[in-house]
Design a protein around this nucleic acid. Structure first.
Length: 287
DNA sequence: CCGCAGCCTCCCCT
DNA sequence: AAGGGGAGGCTGC
């Protein structure tokens, strides 16, 4: 496929090679891959974009057949003033663990992905590793999504999935998550506007709405809200975060829900951003 | 309200 | 070399 020329995204970026890769391919999103030239190629909604860091600037290009606007890209990457403000407002001054994690991933930020496809990815995430979730998303896109440019597929919308049988979903190797996807597609088809309503609702209301969906518990709901709806007070607690929090804040014996509540209280209205730094640091330590 | 097994599939380990 | 344990959870008992 042919691409537009590389374009620069404004002034110098706070991304490093490290934090760019961690932001796009570190578990928030499941549709970015490193290319053999060191750039990153990703898909969201009907958009396909290649990103690279060049002379301290963030550069991008998209297929000429499927151009992406600069505004859409900036929105997706969260390139506005809110990120720096949110970082500064985190309690790193009084929390050495957080301060260390933030120093280790300068430039790491939260994406603003399409809500529906973020939910889809995390619906597949139970007891799976990131590469496995990515494969599942890729199979779903190639099987049920629209081909944007040759060889690149958009994720299917939830409406596109309502006629897909559980057997067809199992053919994508979703395993027992196939019935979650099937049930969620059915649930949403019977309630037009449900996801849009959740996206517009307060964090607490949105979380309760998502948890009505089959296969969506507190952790999956928080991930969808944090990475796909801009609700930064969401504090997803997975096994990594639970382990770090238990060890570092004396939370041994707490349930995951209690740890999530502690996180929201301790880190404040941008708790999810703190979670992302801690998550990346914890995962890195394990390597 | 809490704790626990089971669930698809793949991977890593012995 | 075959088989058990566990992986970025949720559900139902």
């Amino acid at each position: 496929m042919t691409f537009t020329p590389w374009r620069s995204l404004g002034k110098k970026t706070s991304f490093t090679e490290h934090s760019l890769a961690e932001t796009l391919d570190g578990g928030q999103s499941f549709r970015w891959n490193q290319t053999d030239t060191g750039s990153l190629l990703g898909v969201w909604a009907r958009n396909c974009v290649e990103l690279r860091l060049h002379s301290g600037r963030l550069e991008w290009r998209s297929p000429t057949q499927a151009p992406v606007s600069k505004e859409e890209l900036e929105r997706y990457l969260g390139l506005d003033g809110l990120h720096d403000q949110a970082c500064d407002a985190l309690p790193w001054r009084s929390d050495p663990l957080l301060a260390t994690a933030m120093q280790r991933f300068p430039g790491l930020r939260l994406l603003r992905q399409p809500f529906g496809e973020t939910l889809f990815g995390f619906l597949l995430s139970a007891v799976k590793s990131i590469p496995q979730i990515k494969e599942g998303c890729e199979r779903a896109a190639a099987s049920f999504g629209e081909e944007i440019v040759p060889g690149v597929w958009a994720m299917p919308d939830w409406e596109d999935l309502v006629d897909i049988s559980e057997e067809e979903l199992r053919a994508c190797k979703f395993g027992y998550r196939a019935k979650y996807v099937w049930g969620t597609a059915r649930f949403l088809s019977e309630r037009p506007g449900y996801l849009a309503q959740a996206e517009a609702a307060s964090y607490e209301d949105a979380r309760a709405m998502l948890m009505q969906l089959p296969g969506v518990g507190g952790k999956v709901a928080d991930c969808a809200l944090l990475f796909g709806a801009g609700k930064w007070e969401a504090f997803p607690v997975d096994t990594w975060i639970a382990k770090v929090m238990n060890a570092s804040y004396g939370l041994a014996g707490m349930s995951l829900d209690q740890v999530a509540h502690f996180g929201r209280v301790h880190f404040g209205s941008h708790a999810g951003l703190a979670q992302q730094f801690l998550f990346s640091a914890a995962r890195r330590d394990a390597d």
